[in-house]
Design a protein around this nucleic acid. Structure first.
Length: 124
RNA sequence: CGAGUGAGCCAUCUUGUCGCUCCGGUUUUUGCCGGUGAGGAAAGUCCGGACACCACAGAGCAGUAUAGCGGAUAACGUCCGCCCACCGUGAGGUGAGGACUAGUGGCACAGAAACCAGGUACAGUUCGGCUGUAGUGAAAAGGCUAAACUCUAUACGGUGCAAUGCCAAGUAAACCCGCGUUAUCAGGCUUGCUCGGCCGAGCGGGAGGGUAGGCAGCUAAAGAUAAUUGGUAACAAUUAUCUCAGAUAAAUGACAAGACACGACAGAAUCCGGCUUACAGGCUCACUCGAUUU
RNA sequence: GACCCGGUAGCUCAGUAGGUAGAGCAUCUCCCUUUUAAGGAGAGGGUCCUGAGUUCGAGCCUCAGCCGGGUCA
């Protein structure tokens, strides 16, 4: 795995509303509190193995500072683990935070690792 | 030294590795190099502007806001100075601080009686329901109440960057019902109403279809810092230096090491000036009271 | 982001010149009935979202905050 650059540029971020709607309509999900991953294999023009986005509901986390903090932790955690995820084809990913409090980085990292392993089992 | 008052400022820092936004350069292949990157409240959206658009905004009414006097300002409900009232030993603090001698209304309970009056008990009387006292109450004939209507003075066109302009893509110039078509005529604008003015060949409703991209607006400005001058002050003028976020499912994070005061409230979304609310702790200056020493 | 509404009993809502907080449903008790439902009689239940201010006195007027909802591309 040497030589891999752990980057997460803008082109790998899911932005288009049409794709997000499709993801919610027919995507599957895996949960590991306080995280939930919604995913859907799909083809799209962007040159990236996946399109990913992170979401923290305002109903659960009231303060904008805390929502930003959680999204940053999730983004950082996914950035470092993106090559552990073995996907046979292009896939849409949405990470949703379902907890009620601000967690620390280690919990996010471990739970994300759990979900990623779960996905890999399904494809092998 | 202790207690306190007022004004202003700061908001963990340093280094390394990996990563993100925007800008510039390099390179021609999505890399590399350099720079850049949240707040004093970015918040609440409570005021005031700038800016943009609306068949240029006219008159009257209504409505809303403000309320000692003077000044500052682009403007303000903000700020500064002075006067007055109240609070504090004091430094100081607080104040919607015009008018119930224009009119209308309200004053529960208690009380004989509560706002065109009327008249309880007792006493005194010049016998005139005249005077005093008692009693209820916030208030008893003289008042209180305008954060009651109202009056006076002043100000105010409406909508807001999801405004607005342009580009690209796509769809349905179709269907049903009603009204109207060269007119003292449907309907619309003038943003609550009336008058007046203007637009006008289509308009209103039902059911249904399509779009959810990009660029401009978008950050160099009532700008920041310093000095000097004018002014009691708010503030203004001049000179010098500097360029300081512009994202768009939305950029500031992770890890490691070190330091100490062991880190509060909290995240820009068109931009400024205020107000209000949240907030660990620290610093500076001026002043007051008390005690002690000399 | 900008601009608007609302908060009163367990639920749905009334509440105007500021003066003792009400209705319907629900709950509980009793009556009626073989029993239940319906009907009748009665009872309990309130920080009027929170905190200040004006007033002799605020659900109501003023200011600040909290929570919930809506409109606009």
């Amino acid at each position: 795995m040497t030589g891999l650059r752990y980057k997460l540029p803008r082109k790998s971020i899911l932005k288009r509303k049409q794709l997000i709607d499709a993801l919610f309509q027919s995507g599957r999900s895996i949960a590991a509190y306080p995280l939930r991953l919604v995913y859907l294999p799909m083809s799209y023009p962007e040159d990236s193995r996946f399109l990913v986005t992170f979401s923290v509901p305002k109903k659960k986390i009231k303060k904008a500072v805390h929502r930003n903090r959680i999204k940053r932790l999730m983004r950082e955690s996914f950035r470092l683990q993106q090559y552990d995820l073995n996907l046979p084809q292009k896939t849409l990913l949405m990470w949703i935070f379902t907890g009620n409090d601000v967690p620390n980085y280690e919990i996010i990292y471990q739970k994300m690792n759990l979900i990623i392993n779960e996905i890999n089992k399904k494809y092998h």
